[in-house]
Amino acid sequence: MNQEDRAEYRRELRSYIIGLIAALVLTAASFATVHWRLFSAPTGILIAIYLLALVQIIAHFRYFLHIDLRKSARDDLQLILFSTMIVLLMVGGTLIVLFNLKSRMF
């Protein structure tokens, strides 16, 4: 390995280690929130764990899958954002339509 490669290697190794630590901390925070009921209202707990999951998913994309705002990863990022939009439309649509139907049936 030459000098440049070694620096690059350290940078990438650091990225994986940061990713692992971030993932462990966020996971532990999520489980702790539910286990010790850190919020009195269930809604508070749910909002907290959903936010933690969102941050963790972004951390995984950033540190393990190397998706960021750099130009070289732009194609993948666009694909992921488009898929996210499709997923939100389909999941959101399913939940809205079916819960609406349910509330009208009872």
């Binding site: 996971t27 999520s30 489980f31 929130t33 539910v34 009921r37 269930p42 707990i45 749910l46 764990i49 959903y50 933690l52 999951a53 963790q56 998913i57 995984h60 994309f61 393990f64 899958l65």
Partner: peptide
Amino acid sequence: WHFLDIIWVGIFTIVYLQGLTP
């Protein structure tokens, strides 16, 4: 493999943790 990990983040949050929230 990394992608499956991301799906699991969704599963432990939405299935297990939400299910265990009183």
